[in-house]
Amino acid sequence: MRRVLRQDGFVILTCPDLQAIGERLSAGDLDTALYTSRSGPVSRLDMLYGFRPSMKQGNLSMAHHTDFTLKSLAEACTRTGFAKFLGLRRPRRYDLWGLATKARIPDEAIRELGKIDLRPI
């Protein structure tokens, strides 16, 4: 993603939170739904490996090839050349959100980017 961004570009990332999922896995129940999406119930296994109902129908783009904690997501962004990363965990929603910039900009400027009101065109 960094390669195709303009110098002042940024990317917003969201993905499952492996730490939050792991905390729930320790309970030993893999298949109980953690929440229900528009496409149906989502279990710990779906969050780890990909949404099984979609994959069963041939949509293999739903397969997860890696998982992240907030720390590992930040490290992956900086390792691949992003100058700045800010992120947050939402453990009750089992997800991570991050914003990575191509240029080194102050944290406050990144926080302002996160406030952008995106609306469909």
Rank of each mutant, 00 (worst) to 15 (best):
D67M: 08
G28A: 07
E75A: 15
T66Q: 13
Y35I: 06
L25R: 07
T66E: 14
T36N: 10
R93H: 14
G50V: 02
S54L: 12
L96W: 02
S26H: 07
I12R: 13
R52H: 14
T36D: 11
S61L: 13
P53W: 07
A100D: 05
R3Y: 15
L25T: 05
R79V: 08
R92A: 14
I121N: 09
K84W: 06
A27T: 08
E112G: 10
E108D: 14
S54Q: 09
L5N: 03
T14Q: 13
T80H: 15
T80M: 12
A83N: 02
I12G: 10
P120G: 07
L48A: 03
R24G: 04
R93A: 14
L118V: 14
L88E: 14
E108S: 13
S54N: 12
K84G: 06
H64W: 10
G58I: 01
M47V: 08
R6I: 07
G58S: 06
G98S: 10
V4Q: 06
G114T: 04
E112L: 14
Y35W: 14
L99R: 05
S54E: 13
A83E: 09
F51V: 02
T66C: 12
L113Y: 15
I110F: 09
P41S: 10
P91K: 03
F51Q: 01
L118E: 13
K102E: 06
F51S: 04
T14E: 15
D67C: 09
G81D: 11
D67F: 03
C77A: 15
T101S: 12
P16W: 00
M62G: 01
L18E: 00
L25C: 13
V11N: 04
A33L: 06
F68T: 00
L70V: 11
L5K: 02
R92F: 05
Y35E: 10
A63S: 05
W97H: 08
E75F: 07
P41H: 08
T78I: 14
C77Y: 01
P120T: 02
E108Y: 04
M47H: 02
D95P: 00
R44Y: 01
P41M: 04
L99K: 05
M55L: 08
G114C: 08
W97T: 05
G22P: 02
R119Q: 15
A76I: 02
E112Y: 13
G98I: 04
L99H: 03
A63F: 12
S72V: 07
I116V: 15
K84A: 11
H65S: 12
Y49A: 12
R38H: 13
S39C: 06
K84Y: 10
L13N: 01
G87T: 05
K71T: 10
S26Y: 09
G40C: 06
